[in-house]
Nucleic acid binder design. Structure first.
Length: 476
RNA sequence: GGCGACAUAGCCAAGUGGUAAGGCCGGGGUCUGCAAAACCCCUAUUCCCCAGUUCGACUCUGGGUGUCGCCUCCA
């Protein structure tokens, strides 16, 4: 079942054949969010992407362990809490909840562990201590800094040299540090900030150290995939590499494949909280179903930029509805019985489509290409449906079951067709009753009454579609 | 200033050294009481520009132009 997959590794800047650390298993660490406001769609991209990758890996037989952190101790959280007169924990809890609400709507399955910084302070202190003892870090007036000069490989992920960075640094230079690029592992507490006791006095962790600590704790010192947005490559991931490798004393430890997704843009400009050009997932969900948003994201390869607009979302919705319609047709067909041998060719093309789909996913998780095979099978299903329902072709239950299974299998990886049917005050039986009444009206050529019933149902979100074999209905 | 990515039809978007997937929109047709859905047909002699390598390049190399990103919090 497990097939060879290739993946673009930011570290080597090329596609590589993926070889798991441990046969049959995959360990994934994805940088999560800092919970201080509602997630916007740009934030959602890596999680939808990784959810899909994860589904695929599990499908082809890997046992997947997926870890995603919450940075719940942070400047912005503290600032927001102070502005609102609540505790940092209130803010973190509120927006972690908001994160789940949004991601659940996008069919993002939960991680195996969601470690939080605030729950790993002792582990963090231990790693900082180890880095100091190893000569890689130094305390300074209650802070602790990582000394980049002690780590020869610094810059290997982002492809930049220390000298180049210093030349163009726009950061205010802190003269106390050994090297301006040295970054904080531990920050001394300022008045009004949350703090924990440490060997260097009261303080809190720097940003990068958490991921080194928590990935080590939950995945070990070496693991397979490390993911996140491209904006994390530098300095965040670069710093993680420095900390983890220095700490473990093993130059080849830490993440083996670095996978970074491109940005979601608006009018071709990066969407970001600081630029105030973002749309939150929650707001988009008021206009579009979560699956449309998910589908919109997956129709573009994860490494490409993705421009967000209402028009693009509408396009995605139209495409997804096409796929969903085929699913509905397939479901309707599947209720029939028939022993004819009329779907063997379709079954063969379904198997081929599924195979192509898997091959596309195995080639650097090319969801855009993979989805095209879903469309091709969709067409096959539609044609067969028309032949059986409208052209009198005898039904082939056995082969069609295989077709339907292949279609569902692909859809499951993409993560569509999972929306819970919304609770509706109109019961199925009532709908069927009205459809029967309309049928009678149509037979009596009472078009006015027939259309009235159709409009009535439409107003309540029920769409009718007449076919020679009967009337189908669906909720929209 | 340093480093990097990308440029494919009206819109979006895959892709390969061997002659351009798929989706959306649009046009025509079939089916239908009308709708809806579906199906069929049409919609890039061409992949930013200029050189070069090659039997052959959109795909490789060099140069140019444009857009975007990272170098500061950021998915």
């Amino acid at each position: 079942m497990i097939r060879e997959i290739t993946v673009y590794n930011t570290l080597t800047k090329r596609k590589e054949v993926f070889c798991p650390l441990e046969a049959g298993k995959v360990g994934i660490y994805v940088c999560g969010v800092t919970p201080y406001n509602d997630p916007h769609i740009g934030n959602a991209r890596p999680f939808v992407t990784w959810d899909t990758i994860r589904r695929f890996l599990a499908k082809i037989g890997y046992k997947v362990r997926y870890i995603q952190n919450f940075t719940d101790v942070d400047d912005k959280i503290i600032r927001t809490a102070n502005e609102q007169g609540v505790t940092w924990k209130d803010i973190a809890d509120r927006y972690i909840k908001a994160y789940f609400t949004s991601m659940d709507a996008l069919n993002v399955r939960h991680a195996d562990v969601y470690p939080r910084v605030s729950e790993h302070i002792p582990d963090i202190i231990a790693m900082v201590q180890a880095l100091i003892e190893g000569g890689y870090a130094y305390p300074l007036e209650g802070d602790v800094y990582f000394s980049v000069d002690k780590f020869p490989e610094y810059g290997k992920l982002s492809g930049r040299k220390l000298e180049d960075m210093m030349a163009g640094a726009r950061v205010e230079i802190d003269e106390r540090k050994n090297n301006p690029m040295d970054f904080a592992l531990w920050k001394a507490a300022k008045p009004g900030e949350p703090f924990w006791d440490s060997p260097w006095g009261p303080g809190r962790p720097g940003w990068h150290i958490e991921c080194s600590v928590m990935s080590l704790k939950y995945l070990g010192k070496t693991f397979d995939f490390h993911g996140g947005g491209s904006d994390l490559i530098f300095p965040h991931h670069e710093n993680e590499i420095a900390q983890s490798q220095a700490c473990c004393g093993d130059w080849h430890s830490f993440a083996r494949y670095w996978v970074h997704n491109g940005f979601i843009t608006i009018h071709n400009e990066k969407m970001s909280k600081s630029a105030h050009n973002f749309f939150t997932v929650a707001d988009i969900l008021k206009e579009y179903p979560g699956e449309v948003v998910r589908f919109f994201i997956l129709q573009t390869h994860y490494r490409s930029p993705l421009d967000f607009s209402d028009e693009r979302l509408k396009d995605a919705q139209a495409g997804l509805e096409r796929l969903a319609n085929s699913k509905a047709l397939a479901d309707a067909l599947a209720e029939r019985e028939g022993t004819a041998d009329t779907a063997s060719a379709l079954a063969a093309s379904a198997a081929a489509a599924r195979d192509d789909f898997y091959a596309a996913m195995a080639d650097d998780f090319n969801t855009a290409l993979a989805i095209s095979y879903l469309f091709s099978l969709s067409k096959g299903i539609n044609v067969y449906y028309n032949d059986v329902m409208n052209n009198g072709l005898a039904f082939d239950a056995k082969n069609f079951a295989a077709v339907r299974a292949a279609y569902a299998d692909m859809a499951e990886i993409i993560g569509i067709f999972e929306a819970q049917s919304a609770a509706d005050d109109l019961q199925d039986a009532a709908i069927e009753g009205l459809i029967q009444e309309r049928l009678a009206a149509r037979q009596a050529k009472n078009w006015a009454r027939a259309d009235e019933i159709r409009d009535e149902l439409k107003a309540r979100g029920i769409l009718l579609e007449d076919a020679s074999a009967g009337t189908r209905w669906k909720r929209v």
